[in-house]
């Protein structure tokens, strides 16, 4: 009976997203970011590799790009609101006991960053401008 429920649940997930997924086991695909010593990111999804990273990749990228996570920042409450919105409007399933693990991961690695009303210009790549008048 339990196996049947799992099967039905899986079918629902697959048909609601057309792209089913499972917690990734493809360890050979995880290459550390060469530029980062401490923080390693998954070469496929760009997600930070840390506890429960496979869970996040499996649950979230079943329906949308991991880039929607990696380019965003929010408080734990903010991420929870996004999950509620996806559950309400986008067909996300009940995350059950995984939800606190997912929220822990998201608020740790993609938490709020203070930007103020205008941040300094960063990541400027300096080059010599040739065509002076």
């Amino acid at each position: 009976m339990k196996r049947l429920m799992v099967l039905i649940g899986s079918i629902v997930i697959m048909f609601s997203c057309q792209q089913a997924d499972k917690p990734a086991q493809a360890v050979e695909d995880m290459e550390p970011d060469e530029n980062a010593e401490r923080i390693q990111t998954d070469s496929i999804s760009g997600l930070v590799i840390d506890e429960n990273f496979e869970l996040i990749r499996g649950q979230c990228t079943a329906c949308h790009s991991a880039m929607l996570i990696t380019q965003n920042n929010a408080s734990r409450d903010g991420w929870e609101q996004m999950i509620r919105w996806m559950q309400k409007d986008q067909g996300l399933w009940d995350l059950g006991e995984n939800e606190p693990k997912i929220l822990d991961y998201l608020s740790k690695h993609y938490g709020l960053k203070k930007k103020g009303r205008r941040a300094p210009l960063t990541d400027v790549e300096w080059y010599e401008l040739k065509d002076e008048l």
Partner: peptide, 9 residues
């Protein structure tokens, strides 16, 4: 640039 950030692209 918005702070607090807005979700989305």
């Amino acid at each position: 640039e918005f702070d607090p950030p807005a979700k989305g692209n």
